[in-house]
Design a protein around this nucleic acid. Structure first.
Lengths: 232, 232
DNA sequence: GGGAGAAAGTGTTACTATTACACTTAAGGT
DNA sequence: ACCTTAAGTGTAATAGTAACACTTTCTCCC
């Protein structure tokens, strides 16, 4: 038994990159964090945020590093989507790219940290064309978000800690791109019994004010561990 | 505009491998195609089939090549599952591995071609421990199979062209690891209207014999294109 | 050739989940 | 005080899912 590094040396090596599909939710709209690329090829064109894998980090570490460098945030919800390996996907060189998607709750995000990278939130409705296969990645990320939203209360990753039912409904409507019935939505979401109703109301978004809720992580974990399927 | 190869040359390169989670269905059981590894490290231990990515092939090409070399088959259903990039996952060297899952209908498989590689079908129930993170890959592949089976008639990828309803039910029971009601299953699957009933019966599996059916690919495609969700 | 055995095939009812739908309440601004 | 705006609430119809037992068909064996 003597595993040696040169065992595999006959096989070629590749650049490995990561691209982050970063979703946010603001002003009732689903948004994507992108920037204008600063290096060739495609310098000046809209692009996802990405970076190269380093020698001494795992893929998830790299994805977290890229997000941390960009936003200053830790413990962001991330998930791998797919790996892209077409030969000519990057005209400059052969690069294998692993796409991750991330959900950032707007209250944790600050422009301060990210502006040095030219980070811009763009509404999904008026998303410009992105470089290389990044459009495909976004499409796939959106599909994943939809699936996740209907099987886990992932929406909570996109809202502030305290939120109202109408806000939550708007989020789901933005994700599914379709209108939901107020009564049915409220009934269903409350029947899950994972929301804690607070005393206070949010009076910013309406005169009457809507009661604030908080997500009961403990109860939710309990449900999921018991094989529960959280369908909206 | 002058994309050059050396743009990225400061970044490290990595070995990229592929591992195939190959599912089959025989004798009413879900099986996995594995072998005893012939190289160090972990020589002689059970392992998924895999191989290294080559310079002039895409990831999907590589996955198809590996499967073709192993089984002699083309046009096998394959799908990427996840990419594994922990630093120490392979003790011999840093290797990024992309896991694919594949479904092989038993009638297309022949031992002849695969025996040179020591390929063995093992029932999922008595699966031995696999090397490195291959157990995790199988677990994830199985989850994917379950999800796919409940949203697409993927089961058809695992059966011969002509099959009986009881056979199809057994397959679903193997995938879900739970018993289904005969009448409800038949009702539901036939209500999809994607099965063509044939004149002949299969008399191998019972005295009475069960009618053979064939999958109507045209109708199915029509449904899926129309956004239909094929739930069992 | 008659009977036993084994799996295929078939409908109905109860229950649960989903959808559709309209008015009242609360509060701030004029 | 009244107007405006969004929050909040219940019920009935419908569709989908789950539970359940007996009959049919054929082969093999005696």
């Amino acid at each position: 038994m003597g595993p040696k590094n040169q065992d595999y040396s006959e096989h070629p090596k590749f650049h490995v990159a990561l691209d982050c599909i970063i979703f946010g939710f603001e002003q009732g709209e689903l948004k994507l964090l992108i920037h204008k690329r600063r290096i060739e090829p495609f310098k000046g064109h809209w692009s996802l945020f990405g970076g190269f894998l380093k020698d001494k980090e795992s893929l998830t570490d790299a994805a977290n590093r890229i997000l941390r460098e960009l936003t200053g945030l830790e413990k962001i919800y991330m998930e791998e989507i797919q790996t892209y390996g077409e030969i000519k996907r990057d005209p400059a060189a052969r690069v294998i790219s692993v796409a991750y998607y991330a959900l950032i709750p707007s209250h944790r995000y600050s422009d301060e940290h990210s502006k040095q990278y030219g980070a811009t939130w763009v509404s999904l409705k008026d998303l410009p064309a992105l470089i290389m296969d990044h459009d495909t990645m976004v499409e796939k990320g959106l599909m994943r978000l939809r699936r996740r939203a209907s099987s886990q209360p992932i929406g909570f990753e996109l809202l502030p800690r305290e939120f109202t039912i109408p806000q939550l409904q708007t989020l789901y409507e933005a994700i599914y791109q379709s209108e939901l019935d107020k009564r049915n939505f409220r009934k269903k979401i409350l029947s899950k019994d994972v929301l804690i109703k607070l005393e206070e109301k949010d009076k910013i978004h309406s005169r009457k004010g809507a009661f604030l809720y908080r997500f009961d992580k403990r109860k939710y974990k309990h449900l999921v561990d018991g094989g529960y399927n959280f369908t909206i």
